[in-house]
């Protein structure tokens, strides 16, 4: 079946197989390997991207359902020059250790920050609770997200 969607602002038209996941399309077909292949069962959040501005785990999202959708990945969040505010905050707060969870973590954080969440630690932890960091660097991640909420509210 053919689907047409926008990925990071570019129109994409592709033939997709029935159960092909958005993660497969992004990594294998479009070469957008920033989105990570983690558990493939929706548990770890490493494959989080935005579909129509909402965070989803792309490993469990069937491409067949995405005709007409708008998808944003970590590549789409990154400006042509430099880093987005969240990316920079992750650098500044040393919120990246091995880095594997980082793209998914930042996409979940982007959705969280855009949702108008207050600069509240419990709310941030809850909003990111679908993303595992096996380096367990959660405190620094929360600090990074907190700083961006404060910046954007300032």
């Amino acid at each position: 079946m053919r689907i047409e969607l926008m990925v990071n602002g570019d129109p994409v038209s592709r033939l997709v197989e029935g159960s092909e996941s958005l993660l497969d399309l992004l990594r294998n077909d479009l070469g957008l390997v920033g989105t990570k292949w983690g558990c493939l069962t929706g548990d770890c959040g490493a494959c989080t991207v935005l579909v129509n501005s909402e965070p989803v785990v792309s490993c469990l999202k069937a491409c067949a359902q995405l005709d007409g959708s708008t998808v944003t990945t970590i590549e789409g969040l990154t400006p042509t020059h430099g880093l987005s505010d969240l990316q920079q905050a992750f650098v500044d707060h040393f919120a990246t250790q091995c880095g594997f969870c980082t793209p998914g973590m930042i996409m979940a954080a982007e959705a969280l920050v855009n949702s108008g969440v207050p600069a509240d630690e419990a709310a941030i932890r809850e909003g990111l609770s679908g993303n595992l960091c096996r380096c367990t660097g959660y405190n620094k991640i929360v600090d990074a997200v907190m700083s961006v909420i404060e910046q954007r509210n300032a």
Binding site: G42, T48, P55, V56, A111, G130, N131
Partner: peptide, 9 residues
């Protein structure tokens, strides 16, 4: 239920 991502889907 689940996580934000799961609840969205």
């Amino acid at each position: 239920l689940g996580s934000v991502q799961i609840r969205v889907m």
